[in-house]
Amino acid sequence: IPPSLSSSQAIELIKKQMEQIDKLLQLHCDDPEVRKWDNLTEQVIIRAFGKPHDNLDVYSSA
């Protein structure tokens, strides 16, 4: 899958995901919001860098 976002679009979307981390830290790890955030973050990384990509592997194994 090739990247589909410009650098500036990718930066904006990643920042948006980062802004939600403080809220997630208040939740339990089983909260569906956490899974939702994680899935969306992976999608953003794929759109930013393409798939396969080292960044995606590093993120997924974190």
């Binding site: 650098s7 930066i11 990643i14 920042k15 997630l24 930013a48 960044n55 590093v58 993120y59 974190a62």
Partner: peptide, 24 residues
């Protein structure tokens, strides 16, 4: 729960690194 918090902090650092890459 403790490892969950660590994981989120780790993911935040990774995302910061990705933004730095995109700025280059």
């Amino acid at each position: 729960q403790n490892s969950f918090i660590k994981t989120l902090h780790n993911k935040r650092s990774l995302l910061e690194g990705f933004i730095e890459q995109l700025k280059i």
